[in-house]
């Protein structure tokens, strides 16, 4: 149910959900800080940090930003954004690949 069409009862139900999500976010924050004190190998530290951060971000986006029940126009906008965002993040890993092929030599 998109936020525009929520009834009073649905909003009341949602307010309880918001506090549950708040509790979950606090627990996940504690977990991510605790993991950092273990000093795992760098690769696994990055993977775990990103998994926990992505879980927290998903909870905020789905429940606080109501993306769990949004209209197609919003999903299409965000879908295109996600594709372009992934492209931005992939660029740094392409630099050595491009260097090997002499793309940076003028």
């Amino acid at each position: 149910m998109a936020s525009e069409h929520m009834t009073l009862e649905e909003v009341k139900k949602h307010t309880r959900t918001y506090w549950v999500i708040f509790g979950a976010l606090l627990v996940l924050t504690a977990i991510t800080v605790a993991i950092s004190y273990v000093h795992l190998p760098f690769f696994w530290a990055v993977v775990l940090a990103l998994v926990v951060a992505s879980t927290k971000a998903s909870l905020v986006a789905l429940y606080f930003m109501h993306l769990i029940s949004e209209k197609t126009a919003i999903y299409l906008t965000l879908g295109l954004t996600a594709v372009l965002f992934v492209f931005l993040i992939v660029i740094p890993w392409m630099i050595p690949w491009a260097e090997v092929r002499g793309w940076f030599v003028s």
Binding site: T32, I35, A49, L50, V52
Partner: peptide
């Protein structure tokens, strides 16, 4: 930002 800058 928090894990990427502070915790890694």
């Amino acid at each position: 930002l928090f894990p990427i800058l502070y915790l890694l």
